[in-house]
Every structure is written in C-alpha cells, then in structure tokens.
Design a protein around this nucleic acid. Sequence first.
DNA 1: GCCGTTTTCGGCCCGACTGTTTTCAGTCG
Length: 566
Amino acid sequence: MKSKEIAHRFDQIADVLEFLGENQFKVGAYRKVARTLSDLTEDIEVISREGRLREIPGVGEGIAQHIIEYLDTGKISKYEEELKRVPPELIQLMNIPGMGPKTLALANKTLKVRNLADLKRVIEDGSLAGLPGLGEKKVENIRKGIARFEAVKERIPLGLALPLVETIMAGLKKGFKITMISPAGSLRRMRETVGDIDILVGSSQGKKMVEVFTHLPMVKEILAAGETKGSIISDEGFQVDLRVVPEKAFGAALQYFTGSQAHNVKLRGIAQKTGFKVNEYGVFRGEKLVAGKTEEEVYESLGLQYMPPEMREDRGEIELAREGKIPRLVEVSDIRGDLHVHSRHSDGTGEIEDIAKKAKEKGYQWIAICDHSKSAKYARGLPESEVLKVIEEIEELNGKLKGIRVLAGVEVDILTDGSLDFPDRLLKKLDLVVGAIHQGFKKDVTRRMIRAMENPYLKIIAHPTGRLISSREGYEVDIDAVMAKAAETGTALEINAHYDRLDLDDLNVMKAKKKGVKLAIGTDAHSVGMLEYMRLGVAVARRGWLGPEDIINTSSAEKIKGWKKA
DNA sequence: GCCGTTTTCGGCCCGACTGTTTTCAGTCG
C-alpha cells in the first residue's frame, strides 16, 4: 500500500505547484503519475528493488528519485519545505467550484486569505470583488460554490445511481421517440461510486427535451436548462446532467463524455501524432469529418479496436486495442447462477422457493443458498440440526421445481483460530461452502483465512477485504498472501456484489487474475429483490478485465457440486 | 516533469462557458 501513500504525496505536490503557478504540464505530470501509482497492482517496493521504476508510465528520472527517497525515509525532501509553507486548509479551497488556483493565489497574496473563514470575510466586506479580474458576478458564483462545497454530498453508490438513471431515461422516452440515448461518465464505466450522473441523447430537439427532463417527477431543483444541456438535483439529492447532441455526433460525444479523462487524454495524444483531431463532435483530419456517429467508428478511425466502457481507465487498454487484443469480457448473460444468497432461515427475508423462482426468471440454471452458521448470532446463524433440515427442504424443492437447481450451501464463519464454525462431517454434506470473517477484524485475519483455505470443503472466501464503501476500511489483511494461498489451494475469492461492498474491487480482481485465482460472484442477497445486484458484481469483474473463464458463475451446477480443490 | 512513428528539445487534449474584458483569462468537464 506504499504506492497509495506515494500517490497521495504526489497529488499534494501537484496541488501546491498548481497553487504556486508552476508550469501546468509539470503539475499534470505529478497528477498523472499519482493516478498510475494509486492504480498499481504490483508492490512498488518490489518494483523499486528490481530497478524497474522507470518502466512505470510517467515515472522519469526525477520522480523515480522521489519514490526511492520515500521508500527509504518516508519523506520527499525536495517538497517538505514547500508543503509546510502552504497550509492544507488553504489548498482545500481550490475544491470550491468557481475557485481555481489563480483566484486563490491572488486572494491569498493581496487579501491574506488563508482559510474558509477568511474567504467568507473578504466576500462579505466586498474586497474580493474589488480585485482585478473579479467582479460582483464572479464573487456571487464563488459564494454559491462555497454553499455547495460545504454541503458536499458523498459520492453516489453505483447501485443507487443505476435505478435512478433508468427511471429518468424511461421518462424521457415517454415524451420522445429517441433511438440514441445512453448514460455516460463514470456511471457508464460502472465505477463503484459516481460523482454525478450523466445522460447523453442524440436528437435535434434539445430545447424541448431539456424542458421535459427538468420537469420529471423526481426533480427537486433545476440548476440549469439551456438548448443543449440541463442539470437537476433529484429528490434523493443526486445531481443529474442531460446533454443533447446532434445525431451525427452521438458516437463522438458518447466517447467524449464517457471518459475517463485519462483515457481521453491518451486517445487525443495518439490522434494528434497521426494527424487527426478528436473532439466531442467527431474525429477530423484537417477540416474533414472522418468519424462521429458511433463510438466504434471513432475508435476504428484511429486504428484502435473498440473498448468496453468499463476498461477505459488508461490502465493499458489503449495499448491492447492498438494490437487488436481487447479481451472478451464476461457479460451478465454468461452468468448461470448466484453463489451467495441468504434465505429467511437466517437473516434473509425470502423463502427458498421464491428465490429459486426468481433465479429461474433471471435465466439462471442454479442458485446457491448460503445461510449463516451458528456463531453468527447477530445474523440468526443456524445450528447444525437446522442446516440438515434446510438440506432436506432443498432436496424436496429440487424434486418439484423444473428448470432451476437449488444448491445447498452455507456461509460459514471463520473463527478466531482459523477453524470453521461447522465440522467437516456437516460441510461435506453440502453442495457449496463459503467461508467468511464476521468477527475479530483485527485479529490475525490473514493467518485465519490461510488456515481456512486449507480445509478441502471451503471453496470460496466471501468479501475477502471486509471493506464497506460507505463506512469501513476493512480487515487488517495481507490480501497478496491470501491470493497466493487461494491460487495454491484452488480456492475462489468472492466478488461480493452488494453495492456497499463490491469486495474484491476492480484492481484486486485484476491482481487475482494475474495470480491465477478464480473469482466467484455472489450478491449476498438478503431478499429476492437483491438478486438484481448481480450486474454490479459483473461490472467489477469487467473492470478487472475478467472473461467468462475466470468466473465460477459461468459453470454448470454439476461442475460446482463436483468441484474439487487443488 | 515526462517523453519520442517529427523530436533528446519543445512540445504536452480540447472546447464551452462566463465574466471581465476591448481581445482574453480562468475555470470546468
């Protein structure tokens, strides 16, 4: 995790350099390398030891020295002094919409603004508006920006943003005959959380469409309503932007607004070198439009294979596309079953039969019921005798139901000594054993997981890091060691598809695949409706570049039942 | 500060919008 620390350091340096008015490309160089480092799946200390730092894109002579110094001493001396002279609470103010580095530097220099309170003061007494280049309107903008800055909402979990965007798109389709409409931005790339929600439409009726959009039932506040762009706050407090572009530019605009920014920057760099220009209206050679209607033709015109949105993070996908080696990613339609579902027998709400019927409706071939084990008191964990009864109930159901097979599983607690909460004689009667840590998050988690994986009946480790996106860091666990043991024993690691978990995350999934670990998607559904979270798990898998062959869920029921570990 | 299908020096993604300006700087996505 050293690379994340270094990334954070470089981001701070970029902030300070920007504030000081340094060369913007230097600032950009630090930002870019910070992002690359925070995405790194390999251990930076190993890379450094083996003298391969310069192989990391964006790491040159100077930055390599900074990294080495940080790894040795925990400091980057060149910037220690500079960082000390610029207080963090001042730099924070650059996050106020309308307040950039130039304005902040000017306010700091001439009006001695050092923090938010100072800034509010110079707004109230009128001195900010008196500065060159500023005026009443700009200051009013900053005042509004402060209000937004102070009310800053958490990022929106993907699992909550998706239903909202679907409702809005359905609302727009009611009023218009639209063929070109799509989510864009980080939502389309299926990031685990999104800052705001972008929707793009290809149409000549921009003004009317914005009108309908801003008067949909879930609109709480209208932020903007123009000819081509509308912006609202939903009743849940989420910002949604609608953009309307001409149909012939829909593909180019979709590419542009989907991002990521890093992906687009690299794409345009390539375009430029080969004599093209790319913007949201199309790909141009000189004045001549050569592509724009579809995303496919935008990429193709630049000599690149099409890339799924989930891959567009500048993590090497453009290089692959150049060689025509973009992998076939797993799709929701490849999924034959869900590997982690709770019923009313423990802390879920659904009857097994209803869960099975819903699974069949979703096109699954099988579904694994995995209720909690006896030590999980808070989740009404089952004693051995009850598990036997559930196995009987499932056998009976399988005799009755057609077109769907229910697998009898359990989510068994990994106890504080690394043993499992049920004896092997019970585990071997089950079709699937999923193990999980639910207590003692700081107690020897790595060693416990490793010991648990040595049990031949335990096939999957659920939510391996234990993080909760909204509220919890996760266990104290050495995930590399866990992955190594998983690869050695043939244990699968879970992609828990609940929107607040998504654990493993995309980067860990990518790393697991490299280490030869199989992944298992489980929704951890506690109600029938929560089976829908499967698409979030698939999204994480796609962001980790997984194909159908990397995922246990694409196997048949027989294969899952007969699965023997290495 | 990085980097090389034009380069070891001179570039570095691109455009919209806004407000403050008489031609453009700053901010944003």
